[in-house]
């Protein structure tokens, strides 16, 4: 098998698929050219991510990592959620084949992008450097 049981479970039964109307933050990363796009919606109450949904155009590992990422950040304070790394997502899935790791980077980026959008919308200050487009380690030209 290309993927572990855990990955296939999240691929076959993705958690939190869909849209959140009136989301507090929306992040979209990747591009259709490279074959992976991830869109993440977050709902924030009292600085806690109370709901999170995603839509993904991509391969099995892109869908599975999106799904796992939503599970990992739900219920977390925003500052904590944003610290999620793609490694943490991949580990939670029990690993990915080496050539598939690049597809998982998007999950981390999507969370960051959604949080950035939330900060922007609410006038919350943050370290601009950390959220600059293109520093998210996913280069797809």
């Amino acid at each position: 098998m290309l993927y572990s049981k855990e990955v296939m479970d999240h691929f076959r039964n993705p958690r939190n698929v869909g849209e959140i109307e009136n989301a507090d933050g929306i992040g979209e990363v990747g591009n259709a050219k490279c074959g992976d796009i991830m869109r993440m919606y977050i709902k924030v109450e009292n600085n806690i991510i109370t709901d999170c949904k995603f839509m993904t155009f991509g391969c099995g590992s892109a869908i599975a990592t999106s799904s796992m990422a939503t599970e990992l950040i739900k219920g977390k304070p925003v500052e904590e959620a944003v610290k999620i790394t793609n490694k943490a997502v991949v580990d939670a899935l029990g690993g990915l084949p080496a050539h598939k790791l690049h597809c998982s980077v998007l999950a981390e980026e999507a969370v960051k992008a959604a949080v950035k959008d939330y900060y922007d919308k609410n006038g919350i200050a943050y370290d601009q450097e950390k959220y600059k487009q293109g520093t998210w380690g996913h280069d797809h030209n």
Partner: peptide
């Protein structure tokens, strides 16, 4: 397509 942001 239902879960695809591109399709959306």
């Amino acid at each position: 397509r239902k879960m695809s942001p591109v399709w959306d």
